[in-house]
Structures are given as C-alpha cells and as structure tokens.
C-alpha cells in the first residue's frame, strides 16, 4: 500500500462515517406550536430542500394549522403528504399553503414530500 492509497482509504472511511452520522444521527431542528387566541396551534414551515423546522411538537386534541411556505421551484418538494391524516396537498412555489388537521392521538407522525425523500415529523403530546 503506498501513501496515496493510505490517504484515500482513511479519507474515504472518514467521509463514509461522516455521511452516516450527518444524515442519520445528528440533532434536528425542533419547533413547538404557538397557540393562537382561538385555540388553534399554528406553525410556520419553510420548504426549501427540506422542512425547517422539521420536527414539530403539538398538543393532542387541539386543531393544528401548518403554514407551508415553499421557497423554491424544485419539483421534489411540490407535494406534501401526511399519510396518517390522509392529506396530500400541492404546494405552489413561493406561496403559503395551509394544512389543517386535528391530532387525536399522541405519537410521532411523519410527513414527507411526494416521493418520501424529504421528511419531517409531527410529534403529538
């Protein structure tokens, strides 16, 4: 094994380790819902290559209003899906789209883009 091979091997393995850590194990951005005067829990979410925030905490039994602002034209994010709530919405680019739902059970519910690449979760407490 020459020096170049050693360097490539070490850097390659380190990079692979970084990819695994970065995508699977690093901490995520979490946001709790703000309740409005009418008792609706409101959260603003920006869609650009992902959802920020991508973990949303809400309380059980109170209506939730999520405002998705899609800040890009990339087709990956053109749909939003809440499979547990049977919701599929088109998100027009550079517009805000409201998604309203009523979480009746506690738990962690995923939401994704149309193809399941971009992910976020709704944590109901």
């Amino acid at each position: 094994m020459d020096t170049a091979e050693i360097i490539v091997t070490v850097v390659g393995l380190a990079l692979a380790g970084f990819v695994v850590w970065y995508f699977f194990f690093s901490a995520r951005q979490t946001a709790s819902a703000v309740s409005s005067s009418s008792g609706v829990q409101e959260v603003d979410i920006t869609v650009k290559g992902g959802y920020s925030p991508d973990v949303i905490e809400v309380e059980r039994g109170k209506p939730v209003q999520l405002s998705f602002y899609r800040d890009e034209e990339n087709s990956c994010s053109e749909e939003i899906l809440f499979p547990d709530f049977s919701i599929r919405r088109d998100l027009p680019a550079f517009k805000t789209t409201l998604v309203e739902l009523l979480p009746e059970q506690a738990g962690r519910f995923e939401f994704t883009c149309g193809m399941g690449m971009l992910r976020g979760s709704l944590v109901v407490k």
């Binding site: 970065y22 995508f23 690093s26 995520r28 650009k48 290559g49 992902g50 959802y51 920020s52 991508d54 890009e72 034209e73 990339n74 990956c76 193809m115 690449m117 971009l118 992910r119």
Partner: peptide, 19 residues
Amino acid sequence: REFFSSAWNSFKHRAANMD
C-alpha cells in the same frame, strides 16, 4: 443548476435526495 441548488438545500436540512 437545479440539481446542485436542490442538493445543497437538502444538505443543509441533513437530508439527501435524488438530486
């Protein structure tokens, strides 16, 4: 261009997609 901008935006979200 869109592949790169989308990949970068996803990367910032610790996500990765086809792009």
